[in-house]
Design a binder for these strands. Structure first.
Lengths: 193, 193
DNA sequence: CTCCTCCATTAACAATTGTAAAGAAATGCG
DNA sequence: CGCATTTCTTTACAATTGTTAATGGAGGAG
């Protein structure tokens, strides 16, 4: 149950067996069904999730329609991260795209870990840095690439999601409408012929 | 010379006078003229800068033209952050927009600080988290706002930059051409009348 | 102070995207 | 299993943006 978590952690810090046990004890297992809401816009996120199975979708609710901020897959930490970090009301919602197996840790438990395991600071720093690098890569794609290039890159890196996730969720993630994305798909398919 | 730095640091961690001295010793003062290049695309960034005076511009070089990634102002840590973190060749360049007074710290000195001051991990974690929150706010503006709204928000938050920085640098930062930004400015000015 | 480069705006046209609507296909749920 | 909802594509039109080019003005270098 904790294998994937330990594997991810090991990329950044080395824990002894006793430290690993402390880490495991801070988490609670939780299985949630499709469409289950983990964080609602306006609430403060006080849980962080490690995804063992399934996918979560982070999204903005804007005048009735929903705009995807990020899609979290297996072996990632997910949350409305800025709300969790600042303990301020979330501007995003978090929901299960599929039935998901999660390891849940609360904010108080995190603070206990900072006390018990000094190295935990290093771990969360590395995770924050990775999230930053990731956010910046997406941002650079908005500055440097055309919508067509942005879609093409997405397919390269996350092509499998096209089969697992409704297209209009991906379209809003790429900053375009489903109609426009469909046109782009059409254009690219014709180029291949 | 270190007042502003200590003030920023104090927001996140409390250092004793001796710890402050260790921190100060890790930095070197450097004054650079306008247009001075601190990091060039392709190089590995091994310095981090705290800006005492002046402004720095982080930008992509894309097929001849330059696209602004960020504009750093006084009292901020600046760098090609992802290159500095990963110690990989930078995909961005960093340059002085105005004559600037900088406090410079190198990657090796940072590692010394991690050893000498355990709390330094907390500090850099907080900084990484802030940068992430910041990057995400900008990203959300690309997903949620029209170019016009994005410009309006920029004026609200950084209006003074319109007087200090050439407009075409701001336009590329907002993901539009100078021509389009000029049209938006025209439209908004007429609405006010 | 003067020259020259850089900069902001405007205009006209092409290309792309958004919007609204409709139909076909696929999927979820009782 | 079958109905209802969701999803994807296509079409036509309006709106916005990008591109190219020209103008007038501002600001820096010598």
């Amino acid at each position: 149950m904790f294998d994937a978590l330990h594997q991810l952690v090991a990329q950044f810090v080395t824990f002894t067996d006793r430290e690993k046990a402390i880490l495991e004890n801070a988490f609670v297992f939780k299985q949630v069904p499709r469409k289950f809401s983990l964080v609602r816009q306006g609430q403060v996120a006080n849980e962080l999730y490690f995804i063992n199975k399934g996918m979560l979708r982070l999204f903005y609710e804007n005048e009735g329609d929903e705009i995807t901020a990020f899609i979290f897959r297996e072996n990632l930490f997910a949350s409305s991260y800025d709300s969790f970090l600042r303990q301020a009301p979330s501007i995003q919602s978090l929901e299960a795209l599929e039935e998901a197996d999660l390891l849940v840790i609360t904010q108080p438990k995190m603070n206990e870990l900072y006390e018990a395991l000094p190295k935990f600071n290093v771990l969360t720093r590395k995770i924050a840095e990775q999230r930053f690098i990731n956010a910046q890569q997406i941002l650079s794609s908005f500055l440097l690439d055309s919508p067509e290039e942005r879609y093409a890159k997405f397919v390269e890196q996350n092509g499998d999601l096209l089969l697992r996730v409704p297209h209009h969720l991906i379209a809003s993630y790429l900053g375009m409408t489903p109609v426009s994305m469909s046109r782009i798909r059409n254009r690219l398919a014709q180029q291949k012929r």
